[in-house]
């Protein structure tokens, strides 16, 4: 399948429009939900950390530190990707699956179009912008933590910002974005595979979407473990 995606390229003038459409459907349309979830989960991480710091000897700036580390290392790249496996993945599987059921993929093939290239390649290119979504998630997660921490009365602004800047390791950002790019490829290819090769009718489209979500999530969690071990564990 992967080889065929990059074979017999669709005419550039057509492909360009497809890529813009996929960026709109997959990236732009996801920004709202990602912003909402990131902001509030960042806030909850901040509050939970504050409530668990019961020992008066532990400094309050740890709230900012813990929020930053949780959001940048795990929440934004990994858990937003699992959520996107549901949103983007289901959309990809059901839209390609519906095209399969209604013979639209057969129509492309009969016309001489490489349907895998036409349908999957623009999704892969669009998801190269996925790190942009995760970057926004990181920023809003920490912002949510700061607002919840400061306006909830758990810490001062100076302490939170001090903690958020403390022992900052730039490689953690690199690590998070390496993970994000791998997850983007998983998000584009696994749901496409389940949609493209599905058989049956409308009921099977629903089943394929569910199976695709499960496999994409499992793959993200497994790759998260492997990449963490490879990039941070050695």
């Amino acid at each position: 399948m992967l080889k065929e995606i990059f074979n017999k390229q669709t005419k550039w003038s057509v492909m360009r429009n497809l890529i813009f459409k996929e960026i709109d459907d997959l990236i732009i349309d996801s920004l709202g939900i990602v912003a909402f979830i990131s902001f509030f989960v960042g806030g909850v991480v901040s509050i939970q950390t504050a409530l668990n710091l019961t020992n008066p000897l532990i400094p309050k700036y740890l709230i900012g530190f813990a929020t930053r580390q949780s959001v940048i290392l795990e929440f934004a790249p990994t858990f937003i990707s699992v959520i996107m496996a549901g949103k983007m993945g289901s959309f990809i599987t059901s839209s390609i699956g519906t095209m399969r059921v209604t013979e639209q993929i057969d129509a492309l093939e009969v016309m001489g179009v490489n349907s895998l290239n036409y349908l999957v390649f623009p999704k892969i290119i669009a998801l190269l912008f996925y790190p942009f979504v995760i970057g926004i998630s990181m920023f809003l997660g920490v912002l949510g933590g700061w607002i919840a921490g400061v306006y909830g009365g758990f810490t001062s602004s100076a302490e939170f910002i001090n903690g958020a800047q403390m022992q900052f390791i730039p490689f953690h950002i690199v690590y998070a974005f390496i993970k994000t790019i791998i997850f983007a490829l998983l998000l584009a290819t696994i749901p496409s595979f389940h949609g493209y090769y599905m058989k049956g009718g409308a009921l099977e489209v629903g089943k394929a979407s569910t199976v695709s979500f499960v496999w994409t999530s499992v793959s993200i969690i497994l790759f998260n473990y492997i990449l963490t071990q490879l990039l941070l564990g050695s």
Partner: peptide, 23 residues
């Protein structure tokens, strides 16, 4: 060969049972 098959396919028009229009 593949190129000739693609060329031939551009000479084919197909009307599918369910129309198969791109929705």
């Amino acid at each position: 060969d593949d190129d000739e098959k693609r060329e031939l396919r551009t000479e084919i028009g197909m009307v599918f049972q369910g129309s198969a229009l791109f929705d």
